[in-house]
């Protein structure tokens, strides 16, 4: 791994003047964002602030109305979402995105198939894919899923589905990881475990996450961007942002 580069802030994903209109409604406006290598960047804000829309814009699941997005030095403003994923930016979804009727192992293997060029062979038997088991099992072991290797993803607990989703994402070894509320609906135990996993994976890659759990944000995130009504309200480290009176009134809705 890059021993020299990791402490030098390097922007891997940036957005300039990003905006999205739905009909006459402006969901996101003038968002500037710089996500750095080996840093965890949180995107927070009240419900309906446009966090998920920003995610969809950055990953190109939605086409922006205005602005420009750059990933690893390449302009991706008009790139298709699957291409963006192949370039090294992989996202998760707010609702757990597993393949429910595949086993845990198969879920991870689906991610491995494309880079291993084992995705289009319609003439080869399924057991061809067993050559990917070794790598998949290492990922399962890293994330504590080995016991559920052969369980159907649909039968996992909610927290484990989220962990499986992270395992599947990591299988692609992405440069930039976008996690949409990775801890939503989890118990305390799972939250701690997933926070630890995210901290670990962010040592060598950039993470941008939407998160409501502010103690997690305070704990693991280096940068915080606060969105309100589709625009950036504040930006900085957690201490700076949480001290900002505008953030306190917008986010908590209680302060003067």
């Amino acid at each position: 791994m890059g021993m020299v580069a990791d402490h030098e802030p390097r922007v891997v994903l940036s957005a300039r003047g990003l905006g999205k209109d739905f009909g006459g409604f402006t969901a996101v406006n003038n968002v500037n964002l710089d996500v750095q290598h080996a840093r965890i960047h949180a995107l927070i804000g009240p419900n309906g602030a446009g966090k998920t829309t920003v995610f969809n814009l950055l990953t190109k699941f939605l086409q922006p109305t205005r602005g420009q997005i750059t990933l690893l030095g390449t302009d991706i403003t008009r790139t298709r979402p699957d291409k963006v994923a192949r370039m090294g930016m992989v996202r998760s979804f707010q609702i757990s995105a597993v393949f429910p009727h595949l086993t845990v192992l198969e879920n991870v293997r689906v991610a491995l198939q494309r880079p291993a060029e084992l995705a289009v062979q319609f003439w080869r038997p399924l057991k061809t894919l067993n050559q990917l088991n070794g790598r998949a099992e290492v990922l399962l072991e890293d994330l504590g899923l080995t016991r559920w290797r052969d369980a159907r993803a649909a039968d996992l607990s909610y927290g484990r589905k989220r962990v499986l989703e992270i395992a599947t994402t990591l299988a692609l070894d992405p440069e930039v990881l976008l996690l949409d509320e990775p801890m939503a609906g989890m118990g305390q135990e799972d939250v701690r475990m997933v926070a630890e996993i995210i901290r670990e994976v962010a040592r060598h890659r950039a993470v941008l996450m939407v998160e409501h759990n502010l103690s997690v944000v305070a704990d693991i995130c280096h940068q915080v961007t606060v969105l309100q009504r589709g625009e950036i309200l504040a930006h900085g480290d957690y201490a700076t942002v949480s001290a900002d009176p505008r953030v306190r009134s917008a986010y908590m809705g209680t302060e003067d």
Binding site: F61, K83, S92, A97, R109, V110, V120, F122, R124, L126
Partner: peptide
């Protein structure tokens, strides 16, 4: 064979969760 092949596995994944398949680069 087509259904039980590496390609068939990707088809199944797409059917189960198309957005996720796209986000994995397919």
């Amino acid at each position: 064979r087509f259904v039980n092949s590496p390609f068939g596995m990707i088809l199944k994944a797409i059917r189960e969760n198309e957005a996720r398949a796209i986000s994995l680069g397919y």
